[in-house]
Amino acid sequence: MLEVKNLHASINGKEILKGINLTVKDGEVHAVMGLNGAGKSTLSNVIVGHPAYEVTEGSITFNGKDLLQLKPEERAHEGIFLSFQQPVEIPGVSMVNFMRAALNAKRKYQGLDPIPAGDFLKLMREKRSIVELDSKLTSRSVNEGFSGGEKKRNEIFQMAMLEPLLTILDETDSGLDVDALRVVAEGFNKLRRPESSAIVITHYQRLLDYLKPDVVHVLIDGRIVKTGGPELAVEIENRGFDWIIRSERDEVRG
């Protein structure tokens, strides 16, 4: 589904990603772990095409398409969804208008007619209940005045509405208490279709207990230095990152 090859990217002239290789197959869940500043959020931003980042080398293909040639909205239409680490507040734009605009843009891209108003509202209701998102929230402006947990829930709700092929959860666990985390994670699991994939960016094992990754990557200083199965996440939970950094250094020396 997603193939990242030798990806180098920088922001304001500073190189953050220094040669990432990552292949995500249909139906797989990948976890990307690493310390702050390792480049985890940069990776997700580059995949979705944030204009502040410059790709200096390498390629990203998504179901055979050259992603780097596509605008952010076209990447979204292709089925990539980013659950933002800090979802922005957009005062004055109601959730309903926002979701309808997003959904219809995608339908247009697929050559479909706009969704009838009644069907749209029904869909909103259905998906909202899955993530236990209060109906009061969907009648407000996008993320405006939402608590941290409500914002994350709203992200998952939008994912449910847009039914992406690849979802990137960028530190979705940060700022969530255990109950909220459970609701978000369970919601995510319920909504996921068997063929859809996910990249889960996180510091902690906590979220992975729910999401059960197939592959775990460790990202350090802009490179993926270690890849393993779910057991790698458990080991990191117990031992931290230091041992990986050390063995990485040894490898370099050796």
């Binding site: 095409g49 909205e73 969804f81 957009i90 734009v93 605009a101 997003a102």
Partner: peptide
Amino acid sequence: ALFYMRQRGIDEPEARLLLKAAFITE
């Protein structure tokens, strides 16, 4: 806000338009 909307698939002209309307909405 503009990028957030584009990530959700709303193209840039439309996103700008929505933001202008939102600005007036107040």
